[in-house]
């Protein structure tokens, strides 16, 4: 999956993955895709949930790779 921007948030704990993701999406143009990598277990649930409730779309189902989580969110 091709992304326009990437946020590598590995190591950051909640709530910062959510805050950073929403901040980044706010500055992007509609239709652009943001790729987010996290490893905070809480973020697996709250990043996609918060992105969707803020009105963004998941461009792809969240993915678990080992201890890391990959998200693709469309602004």
């Amino acid at each position: 999956m091709q992304a326009d921007f990437t946020l590598d948030l590995r190591g950051e704990s909640c709530p910062y993955p959510v805050i950073y993701t929403l901040d980044a999406l706010k500055d992007m143009q509609k239709g652009q895709v943001l790729h987010v990598v996290t490893d905070c277990p809480g973020s697996f649930r709250n990043v996609p949930e918060e992105a969707v409730s803020a009105g963004y779309k998941l461009a792809k189902e969240p993915e678990k790779a080992g201890q890391e989580y990959l998200f693709y969110i469309e602004a």
Partner: peptide, 22 residues
């Protein structure tokens, strides 16, 4: 929520970052 408290991550242009090998 303040800038000085939350800090700013590096937003990289372009595709997926290298993921740690399984």
């Amino acid at each position: 929520k303040t800038k000085w408290w939350k800090g700013k991550p590096k937003l990289m242009k372009g595709g997926p970052a290298p993921v740690t090998k399984r």
